[in-house]
């Protein structure tokens, strides 16, 4: 039987924070996509989505990211990232940024690349049409629906569908799940007291579930909530959704 990703050439968008801080997430994305038959490539011209600059108000400084993005991914059928936040930035901010400098060409390129950029959950469910990716993860987990993934990239129920199909998993409901974890990019350092207050409330809800793992579709949130959990020696481990999906019974054995 042909694999769902057979013949697809996928441009892997690592995203800057995953590249430097969480490479295991990107490697898991590679493993998972290859397992499903995709041909995965990492074009080295890529950098980041630019939202750190854009969302702090520095539109011009973000343009380098837009240019490198459209250049790096021009030739791919699809661009996949394991971050709803970066995907949302590519979709909603790149054309705006290009428009602001009055470059019609860049705007058009940005529109084209935005249209084929997917969060890994969307790529799996919508493009490859798979929900059961053959993963095995015999642990208690609770899922935090990251704000940008949910409300801007609109990945919706897909993470729950994917997680429920994982063999051996025990998925626990997170109270006040939709509440923001307080990361907010530069918000976390511009308003640290508030950011910590929100992250602490989230961490308390996570601990109340009794989960061994906190799973999210975005490492930025995991870094924030995980920072509180780690400081408090809570013992709950943060893990990116795709790292669970990449685990198989063979790998676990």
């Amino acid at each position: 039987m042909a694999l769902p990703g057979q013949g697809m050439r996928v441009g892997l968008f690592a995203t800057c924070i995953n590249d430097l801080m969480f490479p295991q997430t990107v490697r898991a994305t590679v493993d998972l996509l290859r397992r499903l038959g995709c041909q995965v490539e990492f074009p080295p011209a890529q950098t980041c989505c630019g939202q750190m600059m854009t969302n702090t108000g520095y539109f011009k400084a973000a343009l380098g990211s837009v240019r490198s993005f459209v250049k790096a991914f021009d030739k791919y059928d699809a661009v996949v990232a394991a971050s709803g936040s970066c995907v949302a930035s590519v979709r909603h901010q790149h054309t705006m940024l290009a428009g602001r400098v009055g470059s019609a060409k860049l705007e058009e390129q940005a529109r084209r690349s935005a249209a084929k950029t997917y969060d890994i959950t969307e790529f799996l469910v919508d493009v490859l049409g798979v929900v059961d990716v053959g993963a095995f993860f015999p642990h208690r987990v609770t899922y935090h629906p990251s704000c940008h993934s949910t409300r801007l990239a609109l990945i919706g129920e897909r993470p729950y569908q994917l997680l429920r199909a994982v063999a051996g998993i025990d998925l626990l409901d997170l109270p006040e799940a939709e509440q923001c974890c307080g990361f907010g990019g530069t918000f976390s350092v511009k308003n640290p007291d508030l950011s910590v207050a929100l992250a602490s409330a989230k961490a308390a809800n996570v601990m109340a579930t009794g989960a061994e793992y906190l799973v999210a579709p975005d490492n930025a949130c995991l870094m924030n909530i995980g920072g509180i959990l780690s400081r408090g020696r809570a013992g709950v481990k943060p893990i990116h959704l795709v790292e669970i999906l990449a685990q198989t019974e063979v790998a676990a054995a």
Partner: peptide
């Protein structure tokens, strides 16, 4: 601002770019 109440993960010993 970050580390007063939160730990920070250690940067990866090998970035994804290097691994690739």
């Amino acid at each position: 601002a970050w580390t007063r109440a939160r730990d920070l993960p250690v940067p990866a010993r090998r970035t994804f770019r290097q691994w690739w």
